[in-house]
Design a protein around this nucleic acid. Structure first.
Length: 768
DNA sequence: AAAGGTTGTCATTAA
DNA sequence: TGTTAATGACAACCT
C-alpha cells in the first residue's frame, strides 16, 4: 500500500493544510475510514501525481523507444495547465455572481435587471445552468448577494457566515494571481502556448468575433472585458451589461410558454400561507427554472446552446445537484403544477406530501371537503375516522403521527377558522421541528463553522438522498478534475513523443533508437539534446564513435548544427576544474577563428557538466545514450568498447545522474500537479459549500411553507367538524390524529398529548 | 544585496 | 543483487 502511505503522509497532510488555510475544516480521519477511495481520488486523483507505476506501465506497454516514458512534455503540460486554469477561472468568476443575480431578483423583482419585464428576472433565476454563469461583477452585487443570503438565512432563523463573499473575493484573487504566475514565471511556455488555444489568444479572438458570439463573449470573458470593441477596462460593468444582454437573449429565446402558471403558483402559495410576511418576490426562487427554458425554438437556440455549453463547462458541479435534478421536472408535470407547492421545492419531491393535498389550502381543501362534509356527526363516539381520499397521503410521510398534540396549542382555543399567525405554535412543530429542524439547525452550525466533521457528515446524510453532494459531490468534480489532471499528465507522458519528435526529428530519422532522447523536456536539456542528437546521428554506430569524438572537438563541425539561442540554466558550476580545463581545450586550428571560437565556447557552455566530463574522458558515445538506453543495450554498448575503469565509472555516474535528473523533474512536476489538483479541489469544496447553503435556505423555506399549510389545513378540517349537537369541537379537548393506516381520527386531547409525548421520546432514544 | 525561484545533484528508500 | 524511480535536502545559479 505504497499509495496509502503516501496518501497518508502527504496527500492528507497537504489537503488538510490547504483546507485549514482556507478555513474549511475537514476531519480527514472520518473520511479516511469510511470513504477512502473518494478522498483518495480527491487528493490524488487519477492523475499521475502518485501513480508510480504509470511510467513503468508506459514503458511496458510501449514497445521500443518511440516514446520515452519518463519524458516530461512541459509544453503540453503547461498548456493543459493553462487551459485548466482558464476553465477554472470561468466558473470561478461566474459562480458567485449567479447567486448574486438570483438573489437580486428575489429581493427586488422590479429591480434593474428585470426592469419592467418580470419574466426576465424569472429567466435569470430560472435557468439552472445560468446560476453559475455570470461575469466578474462582484463589487456591489456580491455584497448584495451576501446581504440577501444572510437575510434569507436570518429570515429562516439560520445564521450563516458570509461565505460567498469571502469565497468570491478569494477566488478572484486566486485567479488573477494564477494568471500572473503563469505569465510571468512560465515565459518559456508562452511561446508554445500561443500556438494552442490558450486564454489570452482566446480572449483576443473572441473580442474580434463581435456580436456573433455575443452570449459566449458576455459570459465567458468576464475578466478582461475584451469582448466589447471599446476595450474599456473594468470588465465588471461590461459583464453586467452582458448579463442583461443575455437576459434579453434568453427572453427572446424562451418567451415563457408556461409562464402563465407561475402567477397561479405564486398566488396560491401566498394564499396558502397568508401569514407569510415575506415579500412576495421572495418565493419566486421556488419556481422551476427550466420550466421557462425548456423550449427554445428560435434561431437563437444556438446561442442558447452556447450558453449552456459554457455553463456546463464552468459548472464543475458535474454531479447533478439536487436542485438541478429537481429543476429538470417537466413543465407540465402535474405534480409540480397541480399542487401549489413550488415545483422545485425540494421537499415537495422528496416527501410525498403533495399527495396529501396539502398544497393551496383554499383550493385544495375541496379535495378534502367531500369527506369532511359527508362526515356524519359522530354519534356518541369520540373517535371520528376521517379517511382521506388518498391513502398514501401523510401517513406515508409522517407515519403514524399524532397531530393532536401538535396541532392544538392553547392558542387554538378560539375560532378554528382563524388563520394561524406565524407566532402560533407549529402544528407539525413536534414532528418537523424535532425530526428535521434539529438536524437542520445542526446543519446551520456545520455550515457556519465550516465543515466540522460530525456536522458535515450529518449534513451529508441530510442531503445525501437527493444530490449526492457534500464530499461525494466534491469528489465527483474533483474526480473529473483529477481526470483532467491525469489527462494532462498522461498527455505529458504520452505526448512527450510529440515534443521529442519535434525536437529530435532529425536525429530520429538517422537512428530510430534515439527517439527517446527527447525525453528530457526542459529547454536547457533540449539544447544539449539537440547537440548530442546531431552528434549521435553521426556517432551512433561504434565505428563512427571516434569521428563523433572528433566532431566534439571541431567547432567548425559544430557550427553547422542547429543553433540554440535560448539558454536556460546551465549548471556547470560545480564541474570539476580538471574536467573543465580538458573539456575546454579547443581544437588547435580553431583558436584563431573568432566566430567559431565563440560558438565553441557557447556550445561548451551549453554542455552540462557530465557532457564535459564525458568529453574529457573521451567517452565514445553520447550522454543521451548513456542515460536513456535500456540497461541491456547500455551494457551491450559498453561491451563494444574497451573502456577504462574511470570511464566506466563516469559513464555509470552519468547514467545515474541523468536518470535522477529526469526523476527530479518528474517529481517536481508531480508535486505541482498535486498542488494544482488540491487547489482545484478546494475550489470545488467551496462551491459545494455555497451550493449547500443555497439548498439549505430553500429547504428551510419550503419546510416552513409546508408546515404552515398543514397547520391551516388542520385548522380548517377541525373547524368543520361538528359533534352530535352540531357544535364545533373544542380544540382544547379534541385533536386530530393521523393513524398508521392513513385515516384521521378525532381523539381526546389528553390521549393526543400522551401520544405526542411518546412521539417526542422516540427520536431521542433513537438518536442515542 | 537579499529573497525567492529553478535546476541539478546526492543520498536514501522502495519496488 | 542490480536497476530504477521517487523524493528530501542541499547548493549553485538566476531573476
Amino acid at each position: 500500500m505504497l499509495s496509502l502511505k503516501k496518501y497518508l503522509t502527504e496527500g492528507l497532510l497537504q489537503f488538510t493544510i490547504l483546507l485549514s488555510l482556507i478555513g474549511v475544516r475537514v476531519d480527514v480521519d472520518t473520511y479516511l475510514t469510511s470513504q477512502l477511495p473518494p478522498l483518495r481520488e480527491i487528493i490524488l486523483g487519477p492523475s499521475s501525481a502518485y501513480t508510480q507505476t504509470q511510467f513503468h506501465n508506459l514503458r511496458n506497454t510501449l514497445d521500443g523507444y518511440g516514446i520515452h516514458p519518463k519524458s516530461i512534455d512541459l509544453d503540453n503540460y503547461f498548456t493543459a495547465r493553462r487551459l485548466l486554469s482558464q476553465v477554472r477561472a470561468l466558473d470561478r468568476f461566474q459562480v458567485p455572481t449567479t447567486e448574486v443575480n438570483a438573489w437580486l431578483v428575489h429581493r427586488d423583482p422590479e429591480g434593474s435587471v428585470s426592469g419592467s419585464q418580470p419574466s426576465s428576472g424569472l429567466t435569470l433565476e430560472s435557468s439552472s445552468g445560468l446560476q453559475d454563469v455570470t461575469g466578474p461583477d462582484n463589487g456591489v452585487r456580491e455584497s448584495e448577494t451576501e446581504q440577501g443570503f444572510s437575510e434569507d438565512l436570518e429570515d429562516l432563523g439560520a445564521v450563516a457566515p458570509p461565505v460567498s463573499g469571502d469565497l468570491t473575493k478569494e477566488d478572484i484573487d486566486l485567479g488573477a494571481g494564477r494568471e500572473i504566475f503563469d505569465y510571468s514565471h512560465r515565459q518559456k511556455e508562452q511561446d508554445v502556448d500561443k500556438d494552442l488555444c490558450d486564454g489570452a489568444e482566446q480572449d483576443d479572438t473572441w473580442s474580434g468575433e463581435g456580436a456573433e458570439a455575443l452570449a459566449r463573449n458576455l459570459l465567458v470573458d468576464g475578466e478582461t472585458g475584451e469582448s466589447f470593441p471599446a476595450q474599456v477596462p473594468g470588465g465588471e460593468d461590461q459583464t453586467a451589461l452582458s448579463l442583461e444582454e443575455c437576459l434579453r437573449l434568453l427572453e427572446a429565446t424562451c418567451p415563457f410558454g408556461e409562464n402563465a402558471e407561475f402567477p397561479a403558483d405564486i398566488s396560491s402559495i401566498t394564499e396558502a400561507v397568508p401569514s407569510e410576511s415575506e415579500p412576495p418576490g421572495l418565493q419566486n426562487h421556488l419556481l422551476s427554472p427550466l420550466l421557462t427554458g425548456t423550449e427554445s425554438p428560435f434561431d437563437l437556440e444556438q446561442q442558447w446552446q452556447d450558453l449552456m455549453s459554457i455553463m456546463e463547462m464552468q459548472a464543475m458541479e458535474v454531479n447533478t445537484s439536487a436542485s438541478e435534478i429537481l429543476y429538470s421536472a417537466p413543465p407540465g408535470d402535474p405534480l409540480s403544477t397541480n399542487y401549489s407547492l413550488a415545483p422545485n421545492t425540494p421537499i415537495n419531491q422528496n416527501v410525498s406530501l403533495h399527495q396529501a393535498s396539502l398544497g393551496g389550502c383554499s383550493q385544495d381543501f375541496s379535495l378534502f371537503s367531500p369527506e369532511v362534509e359527508s362526515l356524519p356527526v359522530a354519534g356518541g363516539s369520540t373517535l371520528l375516522p376521517l379517511v382521506p381520499s388518498n391513502s398514501t397521503s401523510l401517513n406515508s410521510t409522517f407515519g403514524s403521527t399524532n397531530l393532536a398534540g401538535l396541532f392544538f396549542p392553547a392558542q387554538l382555543n378560539g375560532s378554528a377558522n382563524d388563520t394561524a399567525g406565524p407566532e402560533l405554535p407549529d402544528p407539525l412543530g413536534g414532528l418537523l421541528d424535532e425530526a428535521m429542524l434539529d438536524e437542520i439547525s445542526l446543519m446551520d452550525l456545520a455550515i457556519e463553522e465550516g465543515f466540522n466533521p460530525v456536522q458535515a457528515s450529518q449534513l451529508e446524510e441530510e442531503f445525501d438522498s437527493d444530490s449526492g453532494l457534500s464530499l461525494d459531490s466534491s469528489h465527483s468534480p474533483s474526480s473529473l478534475s483529477s481526470s483532467e489532471g491525469s489527462s494532462s499528465s498522461s498527455s505529458s507522458s504520452s505526448s512527450s513523443s510529440s515534443s521529442s519528435s519535434s525536437s529530435s526529428s532529425a536525429s530520429s530519422s538517422a537512428s530510430s533508437s534515439f527517439s527517446e532522447e527527447g525525453a528530457v523536456g526542459y529547454s536547457s536539456d533540449s539544447e544539449t539534446l539537440d547537440l548530442e542528437e546531431a552528434e549521435g546521428a553521426v556517432g551512433y554506430q561504434p565505428e563512427y564513435s571516434k569521428f563523433c569524438r572528433m566532431s566534439y572537438q571541431d567547432p567548425a563541425q559544430l557550427s553547422c548544427l542547429p543553433y540554440l539561442e535560448h539558454v536556460g540554466h546551465n549548471h556547470t558550476y560545480n564541474m570539476a576544474p580538471s574536467a573543465l580545463d580538458s573539456a575546454e581545450l579547443p581544437a588547435p586550428g580553431a583558436l584563431k577563428k573568432g566566430s567559431k571560437e565563440k560558438q565553441a565556447d557557447f556550445l561548451d557552455k551549453q554542455m552540462s557538466r557530465d557532457e564535459h566530463r564525458a568529453r574529457a574522458m573521451k567517452i565514445p558515445f553520447t550522454n543521451d545514450k548513456i542515460i536513456n538506453l535500456p540497461v541491456e543495450e547500455f551494457n551491450e554498448l559498453l561491451s563494444k568498447y574497451q573502456l577504462s575503469e574511470a570511464q566506466l565509472s563516469l559513464i555509470r555516474d552519468i547514467r545515474r545522474r541523468g536518470k535522477n535528473k529526469m526523476a527530479a523533474q518528474n517529481c517536481r512536476k508531480r508535486k505541482l500537479d498535486t498542488i494544482l489538483n488540491l487547489e482545484r479541489d478546494v475550489e470545488d469544496l467551496q462551491r459545494d459549500k455555497a451550493r449547500l447553503l443555497r439548498e439549505k435556505v430553500e429547504f428551510l423555506r419550503s419546510l416552513r411553507q409546508m408546515k404552515q399549510k398543514v397547520q391551516s389545513l388542520y385548522q380548517e378540517v377541525f373547524g368543520r367538524l361538528r359533534d352530535e349537537n352540531g357544535r364545533p369541537y373544542s380544540p382544547s379537548q379534541y385533536a386530530l390524529q393521523y393513524a398508521g393506516d392513513g385515516s384521521v381520527l378525532l381523539i381526546p386531547r389528553t390521549l393526543a398529548d400522551q401520544q405526542a409525548r411518546r412521539q417526542e421520546r422516540k427520536p431521542k432514544d433513537r438518536r442515542k
